[in-house]
Design a protein around this nucleic acid. Structure first.
Lengths: 220, 220
DNA sequence: GTCTATACAAAGATAGAC
DNA sequence: GTCTATCTTTGTATAGAC
C-alpha cells in the first residue's frame, strides 16, 4: 500500500481540517478563530484550507454536513419500547451535557454557533432551519413509534412533541452549562415525562428523592 | 439649562455607545463587529469608546449591566392572579419572539451572544450564570406567588419551575427564530401549562383548534 | 495537492491636539 | 471628554515553487 498516500492524503486533510474547525469554532467561536489557527491545529497550512474549502466560510459549510450525521446519531438513538421512556430522556440529556466524553461539551457550543449563523446569514438560515426540522422529525417519530408500541397516547403531534422535547433539552442545557447544579438531570427527565403526559404532573416525583431543594443560587 | 451639555454629554455618550453595541452585537455578533463600527453607529469615535470603557470587552461588560434590568422587566412582569396563567405565558413568549417591537428580535440573539461569552470566558462565566439564576429566581417566585394566591400547588420548587419555564421558552424560541411555523405560540403556552401541572397533559388542547397539523417541515 | 512567502485589508489600541 | 491621526498586530487571500 505504498500508493495510498496520494489518493488519500486529500481526504485526510479534509477530515483533519473539519475536525480542527469543529473543535476551535466550538471553543472560541467562528469569528474569533483565524483560518491560520485552524490550519495549524490540523497540521496543515492556510494554502491547503483555501484549496479545499475556498475559505473559512466554506469550511463551516462542510463542517455542517459532517456534523449533521453525528448529531442525529447522538440524539435519536432508538427509543426502545420500554414502558418508561425516562431512561431514554436521561441518555439524551447526558449526550448533550456530557463534559467531554465524545466532545459532549463542545456539542452544545457548536450547535449554538451554527444556530447563530443560521439566524444571521441568509445562506445558512435555511440550512440550519432544515437541520433543526430534521432533528425534530426524528425525535417526534421516535416518540410516536414508542407511543404506538406501548399503547400510550401522546398529547401532541409527532413534530410538536419533537419541537417541545428539543426545546426543553436545549433551553435546559444552556442553563446547565453555566450552572450545572441549577438544572439537575432528574429535573429535566421528570419535566420531559410530564410534558408528554407520561405521568401525572404532580405525581411521581423525580427519580432521586427531592431532598430539601433549598435554592441553589450562586451568591458570590 | 445652557450648562447641561458638559455634565451630561458623557452619560449620553455612554448610553449611545451601549445602545449601538447592543444593536450591533446582536445583529452581527461580538467578534464580527469592530470597535469603530460601534463608535460610528453611536455617532462617536473609537477614542470616546476607549476612554469610557477601555475597549470592546469593557463595553460588553457595561452592556450586560444595562441589559439585565431590561430583561428582568421583559420577562417577569407581574403574573397577575388570574386562575389561568396562560395569558401570562403568552405574553412572555411574545416578548421573546416579537419581531422588532421593542427590539424583541434582537433580544434572543443578544441573550445567546452573552451566553456564549459566559460559556467561554472565565470572567464572564459567573456573571452570566448569575444573570440566569436571577431570571430563574424571579420567574419562579412569580409562579410561586401566583400558585399560593390561587390555591394551586406547583409540582416543583420555585427555582426548579423557573429553570424549566426559562428553558422551554429559550429552547422553543431558538427553533422559532429559524422556523416560526414549527413552534406556534399556542403549542408553547400549552406545553408550559402542562409542565407546571396547570392542566391535565392530554386534556384541554391548545387554545386555537389543533387543525390537521400536517408536518410543516421545510422541504426546499 | 500542499507548502512558503507575501500582498493587502481591517481591527485593536494609543498619543496628542482641541 | 472627545476627536484626529497613526502605530501595530492580526487576518484573509493569493501567487508561485515543489
Amino acid at each position: 500500500m505504498a500508493r495510498r498516500t496520494q489518493e488519500q492524503r486529500k481526504t485526510e486533510t479534509r477530515t483533519r481540517l473539519i475536525d480542527a474547525a469543529a473543535e476551535l469554532f466550538a471553543r472560541k467561536g467562528f469569528h474569533a478563530v483565524s483560518a491560520e489557527a485552524v490550519a495549524d491545529a490540523a497540521d496543515r497550512t492556510t494554502g491547503a484550507l483555501y484549496s479545499h474549502f475556498g475559505g473559512k466560510e466554506g469550511l463551516l459549510l462542510a463542517l455542517l454536513e459532517v456534523w449533521k450525521q453525528r448529531t442525529v446519531e447522538r440524539l435519536t438513538a432508538e427509543i426502545h419500547q420500554l414502558p418508561d421512556p425516562a431512561p431514554h430522556f436521561a441518555a439524551m440529556w447526558e449526550a448533550i451535557t456530557a463534559p467531554a466524553e465524545d466532545r459532549g461539551e463542545a456539542w452544545l457550543l457548536l450547535e449554538i454557533e451554527l444556530w447563530q449563523h443560521g439566524a444571521r446569514d441568509p445562506v445558512f438560515g435555511p440550512l440550519i432551519a432544515r437541520r433543526f426540522a430534521e432533528i425534530r422529525g426524528q425525535l417526534g417519530e421516535g416518540l410516536a413509534d414508542w407511543a404506538e408500541a406501548t399503547g400510550t397516547e401522546l398529547p401532541y403531534a409527532p413534530d410538536e412533541a419533537g419541537a417541545l422535547v428539543l426545546g426543553a433539552l436545549l433551553g435546559c442545557a444552556l442553563q446547565h452549562r453555566l450552572d450545572p447544579d441549577a438544572v439537575p438531570e432528574e429535573l429535566v427527565v421528570h419535566a420531559l415525562s410530564t410534558l408528554l403526559g407520561l405521568r401525572t404532573p404532580g405525581g411521581s416525583p423525580p427519580a432521586s428523592p427531592r431532598t430539601e431543594q433549598t435554592p441553589k443560587e450562586a451568591r458570590p
